[in-house]
Amino acid sequence: MPSSLLWCLRITVAGQCLAAARIALAAGSEVNGWLFMVAGLPEDIARLTDQVAAGVLIATAASALFRPIRALLFFDAAWMLAISAAIFTNPGSSMSWLAPLAHGVRYAAPLALALLVTAPGRELSSDSARARLAVWAMLLGAAATFIAHGIEALEHYGRFIDLIIGSAKRWLDWSVSQDLAEQLLTVIGVQDLILAAMLLSRRWRWVAMWMALWGLFTALSRMTAMGGGSWHQTLLRSANAGVPLALFLGWWQLVRTTATKPKP
């Protein structure tokens, strides 16, 4: 098992956990909103849920970096799933219906790491069932995220338009028109869908690499468009880059040997 793959997932999980904890503590998570607004629970309980989750997420981040604990990783995956479900069932934007797909990498990263970690001194065989499951979790998670973002881009989602215009203005002092941003989003949307399809069907290693770079770029766009105060929005999306990168790093030892139809 390549240690680079494991470290990639460990850093990814730590990053997303810290960001999710920050959001839960400072602004309130979508789970908090669901408990209060949909389930009708007292706000104290909704807030306590956030606080407990934030505590566990911080512990998960520390654990991921120093000694991954499977139960905590499963909690991270479950929390990310709960957030998606909360957005889906208590929608707050026209794209909320895509949340379960768009967040695919956020469940995949902790799930894959939980499947791949072993007790100290033990090695996980790359063709074991757990390794195979981890690969599928990452492949499907990355594809789902790119499909959802592709649809959002093709729909010319307003937030994405603003990421392009804001980043160009802030870093290049370019005034990008909304019309041009929408044209770029059409290209980006098509690219995202093609990448997702190629990852699942063709299994080209450099597709994973490009997805990792693109995932990093789009995650960073939160900060490039809106400033350093949005660091947590970038960190929350660390799996957008981390999961495809983990696939790239583990390609020869893991993906190629465990995929049902490996391609060289």
Partner: peptide, 8 residues
């Protein structure tokens, strides 16, 4: 606030 804020 639900469409592009930075564009048109």
């Amino acid at each position: 606030s639900e469409i592009s804020a930075a564009g048109d």
